[in-house]
Design a protein around this nucleic acid. Structure first.
Lengths: 168, 168
DNA sequence: TCGAAAGTTCAATAATATTTGAAAACAAGG
DNA sequence: CCTTGTTTTCAAATATTATTGAACTTTCGA
């Protein structure tokens, strides 16, 4: 397989992958492109490589910056802005976890706290069922929250170390 | 807060949550409804509670069954089919992990294997950058794959135990 | 075996999300 | 402080995805 084709496959499947995780295709594709590019790219480079409009490119690069996955790079002697992705995949994963935790898990846990205060006779089976479910989700959510914190502060091989500790 | 309102909030935010994870709103809502219901429900119950059409209900319940999150239940003395969600949240999480691993992580790893066979001069910085990225993602992906296997076979408090082992 | 009730399918439609492109804002160099 | 190249914005257009509902199939009881 030629490099060009391989790059295209990577970009396209990274994009498809993204859509299964609530990330829009283009954002994932730009990320993929920057990940495999040896040097920082300009907006125009991205537009041309992916055949997308200027506005789309701009918005999605900005979003990637918000997520902490891409950085603006200033190359001296150039007027245009350049962009580069964080290349350390472990850092990338940690950053994504950090953001999704903040954006999704934590608000969910807050909501569950509120929902636990439902009024009503706790002998009513509907109330009971509701409360049990909410409380169980909360328990697991809190556990996940703590574990992810540990992960965020951990070394890359945390996963594997964990595995080994459990096995032996 | 009244039970009715609490239930609605739970269902609606579970649905919104789902959309951020590549799961369609209705499927997540039906799942939520079945999670908090004390008894199995029929299609008609679901239609009425969520105000959705018969076709939609049918398709999404089937999808939940495919994911292994919901089961058909036959209540004797009733002609209609009833549906119930797995209530053990830990089992639910494991099941989701199992499915997503199979549907997404494993195909991705297969693709990466193929992409590593790219032709070209390995001193070319574009080739080098591509190969480095692919290989790093593969490495982490394989690690994740193994760790998730461990998790799938683990007890509910695996998370917390892991945490404690690391801390001390 | 038939008829009614329940379940399923899928083309048409609606809702949602993404993309475009042109206009506006901004920034750097002269 | 003006010109030009660059970046940003956002309403409208497009593409994608989800939903409906009526026709069709299956199942069950009599």
């Amino acid at each position: 397989m030629k490099l060009t084709e391989a790059r295209q496959q990577f970009i396209s499947s990274w994009g498809a992958f993204g859509t299964h995780w609530g990330i829009n295709r283009t954002m994932a594709q730009i990320h993929a492109l920057l990940l495999i590019s040896s040097d920082p790219l300009t907006q125009d480079d991205v537009m041309e490589e992916l055949n997308i409009s200027r506005g789309n490119t701009n918005m999605n690069i900005r979003e990637l910056i918000n997520w902490g996955l891409v950085e603006r790079v200033l190359l001296q002697g150039h007027r245009k802005e350049y962009f580069a992705a964080e290349k350390d995949i472990w850092k990338v994963v940690k950053q994504i976890v950090r953001e999704r935790k903040k954006r999704e898990l934590e608000p969910m846990l807050q909501l569950l706290d509120k929902l636990e205060e439902v009024e009503g006779d706790k002998r009513d089976k509907n109330v009971k069922s509701f409360l049990t479910t909410v409380s169980n989700i909360k328990k697991l959510g809190n556990q996940a929250d703590k574990t992810l914190d540990t992960m965020i502060n951990a070394e890359e091989n945390w996963f594997l170390n964990t595995l080994l500790k459990i096995i032996k």
